[in-house]
Amino acid sequence: MTEKTDRKLLTTGIAGTLVAALCCFTPVLAALLGVVGLSAVLGWIDYVLFPALAFFLALTAYAVWRRQRRAQQN
Rank of each mutant, 00 (worst) to 15 (best):
F50Y: 15
T26H: 03
P51T: 07
V64M: 12
A40L: 06
A61W: 15
Y62G: 05
R7E: 08
R69W: 04
A61T: 15
V35R: 15
L57S: 13
L53I: 04
V35Y: 15
W65G: 06
F50T: 09
A52W: 10
L29Q: 00
A21F: 06
A15S: 11
C23H: 07
A52M: 12
A54N: 03
L29I: 00
V19D: 03
I45G: 11
R69C: 03
G37L: 04
L29N: 02
L10G: 09
R67T: 15
A71N: 06
Y47Q: 15
R69H: 02
W65L: 11
L33K: 04
D6P: 08
T11Y: 12
Y47P: 04
Y47H: 13
L42K: 09
Y62S: 07
K4C: 10
L49A: 06
A30Y: 00
T17P: 06
W65V: 08
T17E: 07
T17A: 09
Q68M: 10
L10T: 04
M1D: 10
L32D: 03
G13F: 07
F50S: 10
G13N: 08
A21W: 05
F55G: 01
L53C: 04
I45N: 11
A71P: 07
F50M: 12
E3N: 13
V19I: 11
Q72H: 08
F50I: 06
F55V: 10
A30Q: 11
T26P: 02
